[in-house]
Measured scan of single mutants.
Amino acid sequence: RHRTTFTSLQLEELEKVFQKTHYPDVYVREQLALRTELTEARVQVWFQNRRAKWRK
Rank of each mutant, 00 (worst) to 15 (best):
residue 1 R to H: 14
residue 1 R to D: 06
residue 1 R to G: 14
residue 3 R to A: 07
residue 4 T to I: 15
residue 4 T to R: 06
residue 4 T to W: 08
residue 5 T to I: 09
residue 5 T to R: 12
residue 6 F to K: 00
residue 6 F to C: 05
residue 7 T to Y: 00
residue 8 S to E: 13
residue 8 S to D: 12
residue 8 S to K: 15
residue 11 L to W: 09
residue 12 E to V: 09
residue 13 E to F: 01
residue 13 E to I: 09
residue 14 L to H: 00
residue 14 L to T: 01
residue 15 E to M: 05
residue 16 K to S: 07
residue 16 K to A: 08
residue 18 F to K: 00
residue 18 F to T: 02
residue 19 Q to C: 09
residue 20 K to G: 05
residue 20 K to P: 02
residue 20 K to L: 08
residue 21 T to R: 01
residue 21 T to W: 06
residue 22 H to D: 07
residue 23 Y to G: 03
residue 23 Y to I: 00
residue 23 Y to D: 06
residue 23 Y to T: 02
residue 23 Y to A: 06
residue 24 P to G: 02
residue 26 V to D: 12
residue 26 V to L: 12
residue 26 V to N: 10
residue 26 V to W: 15
residue 26 V to F: 14
residue 27 Y to F: 12
residue 27 Y to V: 12
residue 28 V to M: 13
residue 28 V to N: 13
residue 28 V to L: 11
residue 30 E to N: 13
residue 30 E to Y: 07
residue 31 Q to K: 10
residue 31 Q to E: 09
residue 32 L to K: 01
residue 32 L to V: 10
residue 32 L to D: 01
residue 32 L to A: 04
residue 33 A to E: 05
residue 33 A to C: 14
residue 33 A to G: 05
residue 33 A to M: 12
residue 34 L to P: 00
residue 34 L to K: 15
residue 35 R to V: 11
residue 35 R to D: 04
residue 35 R to A: 09
residue 35 R to Q: 07
residue 35 R to I: 11
residue 36 T to C: 10
residue 36 T to W: 04
residue 37 E to D: 14
residue 37 E to S: 13
residue 37 E to T: 08
residue 37 E to C: 11
residue 38 L to E: 05
residue 38 L to C: 08
residue 39 T to I: 01
residue 39 T to R: 03
residue 39 T to W: 01
residue 39 T to D: 13
residue 40 E to V: 11
residue 42 R to C: 11
residue 42 R to I: 14
residue 43 V to L: 08
residue 44 Q to H: 08
residue 44 Q to P: 00
residue 44 Q to G: 10
residue 44 Q to A: 13
residue 44 Q to W: 05
residue 45 V to A: 13
residue 46 W to G: 02
residue 47 F to W: 02
residue 47 F to S: 01
residue 48 Q to Y: 06
residue 49 N to R: 11
residue 49 N to A: 11
residue 49 N to M: 09
residue 50 R to K: 14
residue 50 R to H: 04
residue 50 R to C: 06
residue 52 A to G: 07
residue 52 A to F: 04
residue 52 A to R: 10
residue 53 K to F: 05
residue 54 W to L: 14
residue 55 R to Q: 13
